[in-house]
Amino acid sequence: MQAETLSGGFADPAIAASYAFRTVMEAMARPGTVREIAGAAPPAPLSPAAGAVLLTLCDTETPVYLAGAANCDAVRAWLAFHTGAPLVGASHCMFALGTWEALAPLSEYSIGSSEYPDRSATLIVECPALDASGAVLTGPGIQTEASLSLPEVAAFRANRRLFPLGLDFLFTSGDRIAALPRSTQVSAPMGAAQVS
């Protein structure tokens, strides 16, 4: 087993997970806010933020789908050692991880059922950058409106139309994280062509 596999977990798991969860929860409760999330050092190509999310939320009860370049030996071994999460295909996962391009098409993932809309996938989207600009967000958790550098607009508008079913998204980049639950209304940034 490689040293890389054994390292990069939370130094003090219960405490680090408590801080990391609060950051994830604040992000999900306040869509569009960008926060720092620390404590994990996963192997490439995973960002430290994505690593912290996996350590905080995943275990043997959460099937994970690794998309594209994230599905490599180093990441698989690290995830198995630190979380024990079973690896599955897109349609059976509770969490999916990869770049926006690698995670497509979104139609593969579970959006929950009308009686159990919570049984839906959460996608961890690795982004080249993440900041509070771009697409305009409104809805629960947002006092007036927020902005977030989403990879596109149309997919999130389509996801919102499924409410209360739908996917929930965590965006990670370096040590930064933001979120977009299914409840958020997304529109194109001012000046951009409206797409729906």
Binding site: D59, T122, P164
Partner: peptide
């Protein structure tokens, strides 16, 4: 493990 399960439920609760 219990906290993770509750935390996942909280996130879905916030999303819906």
């Amino acid at each position: 493990q219990t906290k993770r399960m509750i935390r996942r439920a909280i996130l879905k609760g916030l999303a819906i």
